[in-house]
């Protein structure tokens, strides 16, 4: 088998399901190289199973972590310490509310945590709002795609809380604004940058103004329920039904 030509090994591997491919990577270095070279193991298509989950509460306390009793060593490691190591590092865990999560990373207030490796990083101070957007509140999302890049990005999207829709802002402002300025932090550059988004739909799309938004009852949720990072694009559902990508 040592002399099995590389292209034949590739042909054989191409017939295998992901679980067998994962085992083949562990056979020897040449086989791992063959699996990786063929791009055969698409980690974005791998079967993920739930081994545990965090639950955040409205109480000022650290999020709880739940796991299955039989779960893997990784999950046990996470549960063993919850997020208390943050406190050891000087992070006030009373404000450790989970703002967002993506592919194993947690976004807390001004901080990103990988519970599996117990590593965390503090985000640099937020940049000031760009011109004409002073006074907006921001919702944070995290985007991380380990199969594409080892770097994560934190995105801050401006929004107006329902309580401030009256009075403080000009009811005639179109929403989402076009162009729409968002703030993006990349762990690669370690900097916050402004990104300009333009509206994709044409004139035919229904325009909505801040004034119109008063009709929506529920406050623009600051939880992460309405932001999804999928296939390298961040989808955010706005209160008025707009989808920001």
């Amino acid at each position: 088998m040592d002399s099995l030509p590389g292209d034949v090994l590739g042909d054989v591997l191409a017939l295998l399901p992901p679980r067998s491919l994962a085992a083949c990577r562990g056979v020897c270095k040449a086989w791992r190289a063959a699996v990786d070279a063929g791009g055969l193991l698409r980690s974005d298509l791998l079967p993920l199973s739930v081994r545990g989950f965090f639950v955040g509460t409205d109480m000022p306390s650290c999020p709880f972590f739940f796991r299955r009793p039989s779960s893997s060593s990784t999950a046990r490691k996470i549960a063993g310490a919850a997020l208390d190591y943050l406190q050891d590092m000087g992070y006030d865990q009373d404000i450790a509310m989970i703002r967002g999560y993506c592919n194993g990373l947690l976004l807390l207030d001004q901080c990103v945590v990988n519970p599996a490796t117990r590593r965390w990083a503090r985000l640099p101070p937020y940049p000031p709002s760009p011109e004409k957007m002073e006074g907006f509140h921001y919702k944070e999302c995290i985007a991380f795609e380990p199969a594409v890049s080892p770097h994560y990005r934190v995105v801050r999207l401006p929004y107006v809380p329902i309580s401030e829709l009256e009075g403080k802002f000009d009811g005639g402002i179109e929403w989402p604004m076009d162009p729409f300025v968002i703030q993006v932090f990349s762990s690669g550059s370690q900097r916050w940058e402004h990104r300009l988004l333009v509206r994709e739909q044409g004139e035919a799309a229904a325009r909505c103004t801040l004034g119109d938004m008063r009709q929506f009852y529920s406050p623009y949720s600051v939880s992460c329920d309405d932001a999804v990072f999928w296939h390298e694009a961040l989808y955010v559902k706005c209160m008025n039904g707009f989808l920001i990508r």
């Binding site: 034949v8 042909d11 054989v12 591997l13 017939l15 295998l16 399901p17 067998s20 085992a23 083949c24 990577r25 562990g26 056979v27």
Partner: peptide, 14 residues
């Protein structure tokens, strides 16, 4: 033949 070999790998540990 590759199919046969792949069958021999399936469900096995490293």
């Amino acid at each position: 033949t590759c199919h046969k070999i792949s069958e021999m790998m399936k469900g096995k540990s490293p």
